[in-house]
Each structure stands twice: as structure tokens, then as C-alpha cells.
């Protein structure tokens, strides 16, 4: 007898159950569905605004439904998870070398959090909350 290599196929639809790190990865991928859905919602809002005052007010009213609030909470949590994991990944994707040494990864991620916080403040100010 001679060679007969054993091929072990990877299950194409359930592969991510093989390891917790794959599940973590998939859960992050799923958060982008919520981010996407929220973008669609924003576009709808813009459309309503373009259609006139009545249409926009109906849109705002619809946003206050319990279903809509539940969606917003879920989308907000998903966006937070997506953003933090993304910021934490930036240190891997863009190392910065100053002199001989590389800037510590926490600085790069930290800078993203700082910019995020500043932008949030600007948005809140523009929205006239304060």
C-alpha cells in the first residue's frame, strides 16, 4: 500500500462553532448588520424630511414606538462593540515607529478613543443638547 492522505473537510456553515475565538469573530461580524440597518433608517429619515413636514413628523412618531426603541438600544450596543473592537485592532493594523522603537499599541488605540470622545462632544453640542 502507499499514500492515501486523509482530507478532513471544514464544515462550511458551522465552522465557527469549532472554537470560541471564531464565535467572537462572528459576533463582531453580526454587529455590522445593526450598523447597516441604522444607516438605512437614517436614509429613510432623510427621505421623509425631503417629502415634507407631515411625512417627517410621522417618521419621528414611528421612532417612538417600543419596537423602534428596542432596535435603537440593540443598534447602539452593537455599534459600541463594533467600535471598541475596531479601535483595539488599530494598533495591530498601523504600528508607528518613532526612532527605533514602536509606539506602544495602547497609545494608538487610546488616541482613537480620545478622538471618538471629542467628536461625540462636538455632535452633542451641534445637536443643541447643552
Amino acid at each position: 500500500m502507499s499514500r492515501k492522505p486523509l482530507i478532513r473537510e471544514v464544515p462550511p456553515t458551522t465552522w465557527y462553532f469549532r472554537h470560541p475565538r471564531y464565535l467572537r469573530y462572528m459576533s463582531r461580524e453580526i454587529t455590522s448588520l445593526f450598523v447597516g440597518a441604522y444607516c438605512v433608517l437614517l436614509v429613510c429619515g432623510l427621505g421623509a424630511l425631503a417629502d415634507g413636514k407631515e411625512s417627517y413628523e410621522a417618521f419621528l412618531l414611528a421612532l417612538q414606538s417600543p419596537l423602534s426603541i428596542a432596535f435603537h438600544v440593540a443598534a447602539f450596543i452593537a455599534a459600541l462593540y463594533h467600535a471598541t473592537t475596531w479601535f483595539n485592532a488599530t494598533q495591530v493594523a498601523m504600528p508607528i515607529q518613532i526612532g527605533e522603537n514602536f509606539v506602544p499599541g495602547s497609545w494608538i488605540s487610546g488616541a482613537h478613543y480620545v478622538v471618538w470622545a471629542l467628536l461625540s462632544v462636538v455632535v452633542i453640542l451641534l445637536a443643541g443638547v447643552f
Binding site: H19, R21, Y22, Y25, E29, A89, V92, A93, M94, P95
Partner: peptide, 26 residues
């Protein structure tokens, strides 16, 4: 590459291939 990052987690000599790939994408 979809940046699962598993390669870097298992690398026994800390090459961090995920980092290399993301840098190349950029």
C-alpha cells in the same frame, strides 16, 4: 483575509501575521 486574528494568537514566535496583512491592505 477578513481579520479574524487567529493567526497572531497562535503564533509561537510572535510574528503577528495579522498585523502584517492589515498593513499590506492599507
Amino acid at each position: 483575509c477578513t481579520f479574524v486574528g487567529a493567526c497572531s494568537e497562535v503564533c509561537p514566535v510572535h510574528v503577528d501575521p495579522a498585523s502584517a496583512l492589515q498593513q499590506m491592505k492599507i
